[in-house]
Amino acid sequence: MRIMSPLIAVLALVLVALVTAQVPGGQALLGIILPYLAFALFLGGVVYRVQHWAKSPVPFRIPTTCGQANSLPWIKQNKLDCPSTKAGVIGRMLLEVLLFRSLFRNTKAEIYEGPKLVYGSSKFLWLFALLFHYCFLVIILRHLRLFMDPIPGFVAALEFGDGFFQIGLPVFYQTDAIFLGALAFLFLRRVLLTNIRYISLPADYFPLFLISGIAITGILMRYFLRVDVVAIKQLTHGLATFSPAITGQIGSIFFVHIFLVCALLIYLPFSKLMHMAGVFMSPTRNMMNNSRMVRHINPWNDPKIKPHSYASYEDEFREFMVGADIPVEKELPAQPAEEEVAKAVE
């Protein structure tokens, strides 16, 4: 059921788009109004989520320490996995964002007879996650050809590299195949590994199905059903220049594609896909481990509350402590003898 409900949701989205594209005015709704709405929600949603996260104070250093911390001079520090300087943090973040270093450290645990617990390295998740994200990036950048005029040079370079093998016409893009393969891996991993299946929720399957739907409709549109690209560019370039118009004949498959993309844009800021921004804001990754060098003061401490040392605490409560037989560091001052008190009274 945790797989079926997101699958049904995505299929329902496809069906909605197919029906709406046939209704008069539906194409303008799917092609013009919805993309603007989705894009605004995407930008607004991301900004909202980020500023919301930024409201949480992180007064103390909580980086995950994955290596030797800065210590005595003769102990070698692991500068990337337990950085104590800004440069170290930048290096760590760059490796994390660009190369998914924390996934590279992924391990698997297996139990053998004995019982014997064995840990081993597991690099496939890292490899396919990296392929998935970079293919997605290339595919998104390639789409700039539909939104810009003149088209920037790097887009043409990407298209050339991506279609390097010149297979078929329209030229086959390698990223399309790698992207689908990586998606299949990420999906099968959740289905076939029992421990991963156990912790997988609809929120894990839905983005996989939705992105697969986008990829499949895109591939259908390019290689199999084929659409009038000039008519589509008129619409998409019109969206970018705020003068959208649908004049030519555009196949329904385009409207399914753009509808699913809009669904993804709207879904993204409010889902786990926000790791896109979250990775930059993880205090466990972006903080220096310098607690032993710098005193970090809680920024929301009340300045009226002064530090209260134990010595002054004991000064304040010594009598009561002695009265309650609690040991004290400094005894009460010696009591004047009773005779002297009597004399004083006289």
Partner: peptide, 27 residues
């Protein structure tokens, strides 16, 4: 965070401000 957000918005809206040309210019 604010410069990063501005950079993000700028990158995302690139086609809207960078030499986006005229949509009426059909081939």
């Amino acid at each position: 965070i604010i410069p990063a957000l501005i950079l993000f918005l700028g990158l995302m809206t690139t086609p809207m401000w960078y030499k986006s040309g005229d949509a009426g210019k059909m081939p």
